[in-house]
Protein backbone atom coordinates (compact mmCIF):
# COMPACT_ATOMS: atom_id res chain seq x y z
CA UNK A 1 0.00 0.00 0.00
CA UNK A 2 1.26 3.45 -0.83
CA UNK A 3 1.84 5.98 1.92
CA UNK A 4 -0.70 8.75 2.24
CA UNK A 5 2.00 11.40 2.05
CA UNK A 6 5.13 11.93 0.02
CA UNK A 7 7.91 14.55 -0.02
CA UNK A 8 6.88 18.12 -0.65
CA UNK A 9 7.69 19.38 -4.15
CA UNK A 10 8.65 22.83 -2.85
CA UNK A 11 7.59 25.62 -0.55
CA UNK A 12 3.83 25.80 -0.60
CA UNK A 13 3.03 28.90 1.47
CA UNK A 14 2.62 31.60 -1.17
CA UNK A 15 1.37 29.15 -3.78
CA UNK A 16 -1.33 27.97 -1.43
CA UNK A 17 -2.43 31.57 -0.89
CA UNK A 18 -2.47 32.22 -4.66
CA UNK A 19 -4.41 29.02 -5.29
CA UNK A 20 -6.92 29.91 -2.62
CA UNK A 21 -7.43 33.30 -4.29
CA UNK A 22 -7.85 31.69 -7.71
CA UNK A 23 -10.31 29.22 -6.25
CA UNK A 24 -12.31 32.07 -4.77
CA UNK A 25 -12.24 33.86 -8.15
CA UNK A 26 -13.30 30.80 -10.12
CA UNK A 27 -16.13 30.22 -7.70
CA UNK A 28 -17.34 33.80 -7.83
CA UNK A 29 -16.99 34.34 -11.60
CA UNK A 30 -18.02 30.87 -12.70
CA UNK A 31 -14.92 30.40 -14.90
CA UNK A 32 -15.16 27.10 -16.70
CA UNK A 33 -12.52 24.79 -18.08
CA UNK A 34 -12.62 23.00 -21.40
CA UNK A 35 -14.30 20.05 -19.72
CA UNK A 36 -17.06 22.43 -18.89
CA UNK A 37 -17.22 22.50 -15.11
CA UNK A 38 -16.15 25.14 -12.65
CA UNK A 39 -16.46 22.45 -9.99
CA UNK A 40 -13.72 20.46 -11.72
CA UNK A 41 -11.40 23.48 -11.72
CA UNK A 42 -12.20 24.11 -8.11
CA UNK A 43 -11.44 20.48 -7.22
CA UNK A 44 -8.18 20.72 -9.15
CA UNK A 45 -7.16 23.85 -7.25
CA UNK A 46 -7.95 22.21 -3.95
CA UNK A 47 -6.14 18.99 -4.86
CA UNK A 48 -3.11 20.88 -6.16
CA UNK A 49 -2.93 22.77 -2.86
CA UNK A 50 -3.17 19.55 -0.89
CA UNK A 51 -0.60 17.82 -3.13
CA UNK A 52 1.81 20.69 -2.56
CA UNK A 53 1.49 19.91 1.13
CA UNK A 54 2.43 16.28 0.47
CA UNK A 55 -1.05 14.70 0.36
CA UNK A 56 -0.66 11.65 -1.90
CA UNK A 57 -4.40 10.99 -2.07
CA UNK A 58 -4.98 14.45 -3.51
CA UNK A 59 -2.40 13.82 -6.19
CA UNK A 60 -3.98 10.44 -6.90
CA UNK A 61 -7.27 12.22 -7.59
CA UNK A 62 -5.52 14.65 -9.95
CA UNK A 63 -3.89 11.78 -11.87
CA UNK A 64 -7.21 9.90 -12.04
CA UNK A 65 -9.03 12.96 -13.32
CA UNK A 66 -6.51 13.96 -16.00
CA UNK A 67 -4.82 10.79 -17.23
CA UNK A 68 -7.21 10.28 -20.15
CA UNK A 69 -6.56 13.80 -21.39
CA UNK A 70 -2.78 13.35 -21.11
CA UNK A 71 -2.99 9.89 -22.73
CA UNK A 72 -4.88 11.35 -25.68
CA UNK A 73 -2.16 13.99 -26.24
CA UNK A 74 0.70 11.52 -25.95
CA UNK A 75 -0.90 9.01 -28.32
CA UNK A 76 0.15 11.50 -31.02
CA UNK A 77 3.76 11.15 -29.90
CA UNK A 78 4.08 7.39 -29.64
CA UNK A 79 1.80 4.67 -30.93
CA UNK A 80 3.67 1.99 -29.03
CA UNK A 81 1.49 1.12 -26.04
CA UNK A 82 4.41 0.48 -23.70
CA UNK A 83 6.18 3.71 -24.57
CA UNK A 84 2.90 5.60 -24.47
CA UNK A 85 2.19 4.48 -20.91
CA UNK A 86 5.72 5.39 -19.83
CA UNK A 87 5.33 8.85 -21.31
CA UNK A 88 2.04 9.38 -19.48
CA UNK A 89 3.77 8.37 -16.26
CA UNK A 90 6.65 10.75 -16.94
CA UNK A 91 4.21 13.62 -17.39
CA UNK A 92 2.65 13.08 -13.98
CA UNK A 93 5.99 12.62 -12.26
CA UNK A 94 7.32 15.77 -13.91
CA UNK A 95 4.13 17.62 -13.04
CA UNK A 96 4.47 16.65 -9.40
CA UNK A 97 8.10 17.78 -9.27
CA UNK A 98 7.12 21.12 -10.79
CA UNK A 99 3.94 21.55 -8.80
CA UNK A 100 5.36 24.47 -6.84
CA UNK A 101 5.61 26.37 -10.16
CA UNK A 102 1.91 25.94 -10.93
CA UNK A 103 0.39 29.33 -10.18
CA UNK A 104 -3.24 28.44 -10.80
CA UNK A 105 -3.68 31.20 -13.38
CA UNK A 106 -4.72 28.64 -16.02
CA UNK A 107 -6.68 25.39 -15.65
CA UNK A 108 -4.57 22.51 -14.42
CA UNK A 109 -5.27 20.49 -17.59
CA UNK A 110 -3.75 23.26 -19.74
CA UNK A 111 -0.64 23.17 -17.59
CA UNK A 112 -0.51 19.39 -17.95
CA UNK A 113 -0.97 19.66 -21.74
CA UNK A 114 2.13 21.84 -21.88
CA UNK A 115 4.15 19.31 -19.88
CA UNK A 116 2.80 16.46 -22.02
CA UNK A 117 3.87 18.27 -25.19
CA UNK A 118 7.33 18.85 -23.74
CA UNK A 119 7.70 15.20 -22.67
CA UNK A 120 6.53 13.96 -26.09
CA UNK A 121 8.82 16.34 -27.95
CA UNK A 122 11.77 15.25 -25.81
CA UNK A 123 10.98 11.63 -26.68
CA UNK A 124 10.98 12.46 -30.40
CA UNK A 125 14.29 14.28 -30.11
CA UNK A 126 15.82 11.31 -28.30
CA UNK A 127 14.59 8.94 -31.02
CA UNK A 128 15.90 11.24 -33.74
CA UNK A 129 19.33 11.33 -32.06
CA UNK A 130 19.38 7.54 -32.01
CA UNK A 131 18.19 7.51 -35.65
CA UNK A 132 15.33 5.18 -34.82
CA UNK A 133 12.96 6.44 -37.51
CA UNK A 134 10.84 3.89 -39.35
CA UNK A 135 11.18 4.34 -43.14
CA UNK A 136 8.01 5.34 -44.96
CA UNK A 137 7.18 4.16 -48.43
CA UNK A 138 5.70 7.01 -50.48
CA UNK A 139 3.76 4.46 -52.54
CA UNK A 140 1.76 3.73 -49.43
CA UNK A 141 0.93 7.41 -49.23
CA UNK A 142 -0.28 7.26 -52.83
CA UNK A 143 -2.35 4.19 -52.12
CA UNK A 144 -4.20 5.73 -49.20
CA UNK A 145 -4.75 9.11 -50.82
CA UNK A 146 -5.24 8.30 -54.51
CA UNK A 147 -8.97 8.91 -54.53
CA UNK A 148 -10.98 11.58 -52.75
CA UNK A 149 -12.82 9.14 -50.52
CA UNK A 150 -9.84 6.86 -49.86
CA UNK A 151 -9.03 8.67 -46.64
CA UNK A 152 -12.67 8.36 -45.57
CA UNK A 153 -12.70 4.62 -46.04
CA UNK A 154 -9.72 4.24 -43.74
CA UNK A 155 -10.36 3.39 -40.13
CA UNK A 156 -9.42 6.27 -37.77
CA UNK A 157 -6.48 4.33 -36.33
CA UNK A 158 -5.19 3.56 -39.84
CA UNK A 159 -5.41 7.21 -40.82
CA UNK A 160 -3.62 8.22 -37.62
CA UNK A 161 -0.97 5.59 -38.26
CA UNK A 162 -0.30 6.83 -41.81
CA UNK A 163 0.00 10.44 -40.64
CA UNK A 164 2.22 9.40 -37.76
CA UNK A 165 4.63 7.67 -40.15
CA UNK A 166 4.60 10.52 -42.66
CA UNK A 167 5.38 13.11 -39.97
CA UNK A 168 8.03 10.82 -38.53
CA UNK A 169 10.15 11.45 -41.64
CA UNK A 170 10.52 15.10 -40.60
CA UNK A 171 12.73 16.68 -37.96
CA UNK A 172 11.17 16.69 -34.46
CA UNK A 173 10.59 20.44 -34.53
CA UNK A 174 8.69 20.25 -37.84
CA UNK A 175 6.83 17.21 -36.68
CA UNK A 176 5.73 18.93 -33.48
CA UNK A 177 4.33 21.99 -35.16
CA UNK A 178 2.50 19.92 -37.81
CA UNK A 179 1.08 17.51 -35.25
CA UNK A 180 -0.25 20.39 -33.17
CA UNK A 181 -1.68 22.09 -36.23
CA UNK A 182 -3.30 19.19 -38.06
CA UNK A 183 -4.03 16.64 -35.36
CA UNK A 184 -4.56 18.77 -32.27
CA UNK A 185 -6.03 21.65 -34.30
CA UNK A 186 -4.07 24.21 -32.33
CA UNK A 187 -3.96 27.77 -33.63
CA UNK A 188 -0.83 29.94 -33.41
CA UNK A 189 -1.58 31.13 -29.88
CA UNK A 190 -2.30 27.65 -28.58
CA UNK A 191 0.79 26.22 -30.31
CA UNK A 192 2.91 28.97 -28.78
CA UNK A 193 1.46 28.19 -25.37
CA UNK A 194 2.01 24.45 -25.71
CA UNK A 195 5.56 24.70 -27.08
CA UNK A 196 6.80 27.74 -25.16
CA UNK A 197 7.84 29.36 -28.47
CA UNK A 198 6.96 32.90 -29.51
CA UNK A 199 4.05 33.41 -31.92
CA UNK A 200 6.49 34.60 -34.61
CA UNK A 201 8.58 31.50 -34.17
CA UNK A 202 5.49 29.31 -34.44
CA UNK A 203 4.48 31.00 -37.72
CA UNK A 204 7.98 30.69 -39.20
CA UNK A 205 8.33 27.10 -38.03
CA UNK A 206 4.91 26.16 -39.42
CA UNK A 207 5.78 27.61 -42.81
CA UNK A 208 9.11 25.76 -42.93
CA UNK A 209 7.56 22.50 -41.77
CA UNK A 210 4.78 22.73 -44.39
CA UNK A 211 7.39 23.31 -47.11
CA UNK A 212 9.40 20.31 -45.99
CA UNK A 213 6.28 18.16 -45.83
CA UNK A 214 5.24 19.29 -49.32
CA UNK A 215 8.69 18.39 -50.68
CA UNK A 216 8.52 15.01 -48.99
CA UNK A 217 5.10 14.21 -50.43
CA UNK A 218 5.92 15.57 -53.87
CA UNK A 219 8.49 12.83 -54.24
CA UNK A 220 5.47 10.63 -54.56
CA UNK A 221 4.78 9.77 -58.25
CA UNK A 222 1.04 10.26 -57.85
CA UNK A 223 1.56 13.81 -56.67
CA UNK A 224 3.59 14.63 -59.75
CA UNK A 225 0.82 13.60 -62.18
Amino acid sequence: MIDATFPLPGSAGIEALVLAMVRAMTQSTGVEGSDGSAASISSDVEDVRRSQQGDAEAYRRLVDRHQDHVARILWRFSRDRGVHEELVQDVFVEAYLGLSRYRGTAPFEHWLARIATRVGYRYWKERARQRRTEPFDVQEWDRVTQSEDASQTLEPDEAADVLHRVFEQLAPRDRLVLTLRYLEQCDVVETARRTGWTKTMVKVQTMRARNRLRKLLEHSPMELI
Binding site: W75, V144, T145, S151, Q152, L154, P156, D157, A159, A160, V162, L163, Y182, L183, Q185
Partner: peptide
Protein backbone atom coordinates in the same frame (compact mmCIF):
# COMPACT_ATOMS: atom_id res chain seq x y z
CA UNK B 1 -8.73 14.75 -44.56
CA UNK B 2 -6.51 12.13 -43.01
CA UNK B 3 -6.09 14.27 -39.88
CA UNK B 4 -9.85 14.71 -39.59
CA UNK B 5 -10.25 10.95 -39.77
CA UNK B 6 -7.37 10.40 -37.32
CA UNK B 7 -8.98 12.70 -34.76
CA UNK B 8 -11.87 10.25 -34.47
CA UNK B 9 -9.48 7.67 -33.08
Amino acid sequence: RLAARAREE
